[in-house]
Design a binder for these strands. Sequence first.
DNA 1: CTGAAAGTGATAATCATTCTCATAATACAG
DNA 2: CTGTATTATGAGAATGATTATCACTTTCAG
Lengths: 140, 140
Amino acid sequence: MSNKRTKNQEQILKLINNNSEEMSAQNLHFQIQQHGLRIGLATVYRTLKLLKIEGEIQERVTPDGESFYSTINSVYHHYHHLNCVNCGKSYPMNICPLSQKITDWCHSQKFKVYYHTLEFFGLCAACQDQDIASECLSAN
Amino acid sequence: MSNKRTKNQEQILKLINNNSEEMSAQNLHFQIQQHGLRIGLATVYRTLKLLKIEGEIQERVTPDGESFYSTINSVYHHYHHLNCVNCGKSYPMNICPLSQKITDWCHSQKFKVYYHTLEFFGLCAACQDQDIASECLSAN
DNA sequence: CTGAAAGTGATAATCATTCTCATAATACAG
DNA sequence: CTGTATTATGAGAATGATTATCACTTTCAG
């Protein structure tokens, strides 16, 4: 295992670990520049790919295709969401209904589980009170 | 509710309902042309957005940002996966560990649940036996 | 009819992500 | 050390799915 990281990679991992919010690659690159560091965008993406494979960080892909990254080790980030398919808002739910039994089963499949995602999709209360279907395409 | 659909919209919904595989918008557009129909790509996307809001279809976003659509009503499609963060393969798991209790809780939140996704991420058996981290960036 | 509203398709624009490639840093054998 | 092979890096181009634009059709209520 090549478990030795470069300075750039360490910086990026530290930034993710120290941040309480999940971050996109673009956002991460911007913050790096704010800190006066000079790490190219390509390196950010390469490092995220590496850290992901090493099981250090987790990835959440939003419906519009952008990826957000956060540390796996923080309990704080183990959230699932109720996602409105209309307005796109995500409502975090601070419970995880997965029993230990299921986790064990996954491991028994010879699959090494780093983390899991559980997302619910539907309409939030606000959007249920609208004639959303007719508004859906009108923006065009 | 504008529950009346156009011919194009009906064709697209029918195609999704009749297909046992989940399909991307691009793939869907290609198949439409194969059937001799002339529906523009923009209309395909607009219709998918509409059907999604109406709760007719479900969307799964892959880590590389592409969306795949399938009918909600088919039991066949209610699958969760073990996703390898290295090779990208998805291994379907034909169980759903979510209890009815959780589903009820979601509804109690005034959130109208259309469907949910549950995905596990980690390393598959094959990838656990490789020096993946060192290979990760070498392709570049 | 008829005219406003909604739907459509060709194409351009967007934008996160990946690729390219020349250069810089690092590792390492002799 | 010292040269050399390997890996990492960054600037910018390329990619490709998705979205926006806009002129043209279709729908349908009155």
